[in-house]
Each structure stands twice: as C-alpha cells, then as structure tokens.
Amino acid sequence: MPPQVFDHSAPDRFVVGTVGLPGERTFFLQARTAERITTVVLEKEQVEMLGERVNELLDLVRSKSSDPRSIPLQPREDLIDNAGLSVPVEAEFRVGTMSLGWDTVAEHMVIECFEFTQEDAESGTSADPDEAEDRDRLRVVLGAAQAREFSRRADQVVGAGRQDCPFCSLPLDADGHMCPRANGVAR
C-alpha cells in the first residue's frame, strides 16, 4: 500500500492534546481543515521539543526579517485555542521523525511528522526525513501567528502533567515516588 500524505496546507486548527490522567497520558497532534481531521500519536518529549523548536525558529526568522512585526513575539489573543481534541481521537500513525522548516518566499512554517514503523522499533532508530518517502506523513503549513499559538499550547499541555519532586525533579505519582536523592526513601 502506498504511503499516505495527510496534507493540511491551510489548517483551521493545529493543536496538541492528551487523553488520560497525568502520568498515564497519551499525546496527540491534531490538524483540521474544514471537516477533514488528521490525528497522530507521539511522545511527550516530542511535543516538548517541537514546541521549543517552533519558538526558536520563529525567533530566528524574526531576528533576520526585514519586517520583524510580521512574526509575533507572543500568541495573538484571537488565535488562543484551549478547546479539547476533536472526537473520536483515532490516530493514523505513531510519529517517529519530525522536520521543521520556514518557507522564506511564502513566509510560513512547514511541520512534517513521519510514521514510526516496526522496522524503526526493531532497529532502535527513526528514518531520516530525506529518506522517508515510503512512510505515512502528516504535513502542516502554518502562518507565524498560528505557529506561535501552537508552541504556547504545546508548552501548556506538557506542563499540565504531574508535579516534579523538589529534590530530584522526577515526576511525582499520586502516592509519591522513590526519590533517588533521598537514597530511595519514599516522598
């Protein structure tokens, strides 16, 4: 079966969200264009990294732009989206490799998420984006303001998990945890 490309070149919505309780959450990216919705599953660390890199790229583009006002420093109020994921939440694939770029001509950000395959799991690596033509892919094109809002929400969703232990910075479970800095004493 040929790989599918889920292309959202002008999405109405592109968000990160979760299903489950803190400590047991599953993370999703969801793109919606009109009535078409694409959902993919990924790891918390991938969400955190993507949000950070989106902000870093926007800041870099802003610093080199002839019109820095075209790249907002903060999310625009009218674009803030705190609504839940559209249901049913059914992932098309699990994300392995992601790529991020800025189109200087069209002045928009391109995010691509490539499928993590069974071969990747067995080898312990993920495909290089340049060599991932045989994989399903989510491709999303965002304006600068949309990208800034995506990054804000990604940070918010990642931060909404479990509290960190004040001693070792590892996540606390509802019933505490065995703190390595306290020689395994439960906190």
Rank of each mutant, 00 (worst) to 15 (best):
S151D: 04
C168L: 01
E43R: 13
R53L: 12
D175F: 06
V61E: 04
S65K: 08
I71W: 00
R137L: 13
Q118S: 15
L50M: 12
M1R: 11
V47P: 02
V95F: 04
G84M: 05
P129N: 14
R181G: 06
R153S: 11
R162T: 03
R137I: 10
P3L: 05
N183M: 05
E119S: 15
E45K: 13
V61I: 07
L21K: 15
A83R: 14
T38Y: 09
S63N: 02
P171E: 01
V140Y: 02
G101W: 03
E92A: 15
T39G: 07
L58D: 10
D12L: 00
H108A: 12
A145K: 09
S169M: 11
G159Y: 03
F93D: 05
V140N: 05
K64M: 09
L170Y: 03
F114K: 08
F116W: 14
N183Y: 12
D155H: 05
M98D: 00
S86V: 09
F27H: 13
E149G: 02
L21F: 05
T26P: 02
D81C: 05
E45R: 13
G20C: 08
V40L: 00
R69I: 09
P180S: 06
P3T: 06
L79I: 05
P180G: 01
Q30R: 05
R69M: 11
V110A: 14
E122Y: 10
V15Y: 03
R162I: 02
A127C: 11
T18S: 13
P129H: 12
E35M: 05
D12Y: 00
L142W: 01
H8E: 08
D164N: 05
C165F: 11
R162N: 13
F28S: 05
F167W: 09
P2S: 10
F116L: 15
T117I: 02
L60W: 02
E122R: 14
G23A: 09
E35Q: 14
V105P: 06
F93K: 00
L73M: 06
A174L: 13
A186W: 09
F6G: 01
E149I: 04
D120Q: 07
A186M: 10
E77H: 04
D134P: 01
L79C: 00
T97E: 15
Q146K: 10
V141P: 00
A160E: 12
A31Y: 08
D67Q: 15
R135M: 00
G143Y: 01
D120P: 10
L138V: 09
A182H: 14
P129C: 09
D81M: 03
L42K: 08
E90H: 06
G84R: 03
E24H: 14
V158G: 03
S126P: 03
V19M: 11
V41R: 15
V41Y: 08
S169T: 10
S65C: 07
A106T: 09
R53T: 12
